[in-house]
């Protein structure tokens, strides 16, 4: 974890944070492509939180539903979807931002404003983060919780998620 800016993704009543310096882009896609898992004598099912893949600049990126990783799914069956692309060293990961595109369209019709759907994305700037209370945590895929006026924001451990995916999808025979 760095003490720099934090990128926030709000899903329903929960907010997740990741280090902003690992967020390479937020992209909009029509659909996810399949991540093929070939059956083998010891292969297990692909975890449900893996929603598929997207491509960006010729690279294939695995997309996950972060809320499902921590419990319940909120990702709709049909796109378009907005995905935050995380780049960490040579690894990439997409985190789907549920409902974001749909919300944007609804808002446009309600208000007539050209909302971009980015309402579910926000930031905590470095200066503010340093003033907030941060409580480290041993919970799965969690670096800790940021306390913002009573609301706890889970700071996600992207490295752990990447390692777990690598472990689950690695070749076995």
């Amino acid at each position: 974890m760095t003490d720099g800016d934090k990128f926030l993704i709000s899903i329903n009543d929960k907010t997740f944070a990741v280090d902003a310096d690992v967020v390479a882009a937020v992209v909009e896609v029509e659909r996810f492509f399949m991540l093929p898992v070939i059956q083998s004598s010891s292969s297990s099912l692909k975890p449900r939180y893996i929603k598929g893949t997207i491509t960006r600049r010729g690279e294939v990126i695995v997309v996950i539903d972060i809320e499902e990783l921590f419990g319940v799914s909120s990702v709709r069956d049909k796109g378009p979807y907005r995905v935050a692309v995380i780049k960490k060293d040579t690894s990439s990961l997409g985190i789907v931002i549920p409902g974001a595109v749909q919300q944007s369209k609804e808002q446009q019709s309600e208000t007539g404003a050209s909302g971009s759907g980015r309402e579910r994305i926000s930031f905590i700037w470095k200066e503010d983060f340093n003033k907030l209370e941060f409580e480290p945590s041993d919970e799965n895929y969690t670096l800790g919780f940021i306390d913002t006026a009573g609301k706890k924001i889970r700071l996600v451990d992207c490295q752990k998620i990447l390692e777990e995916i690598q472990k689950l999808l690695s070749r076995r025979q």
């Binding site: 492509f33 991540l35 093929p36 070939i38 491509t55 695995v62 690894s91 690695s170 070749r171």
Partner: peptide
């Protein structure tokens, strides 16, 4: 292209090509 992390060692997948329309095609 070889697969990149975290899917570098997927069983039965040799690599991937990305078509002009952005679709990934995995080489089995």
């Amino acid at each position: 292209k070889p697969l990149s992390q975290p899917i570098t060692k997927m069983h039965g997948i040799i690599g991937v090509t990305v078509l002009g329309d952005g679709r990934p095609v995995f080489l089995i």
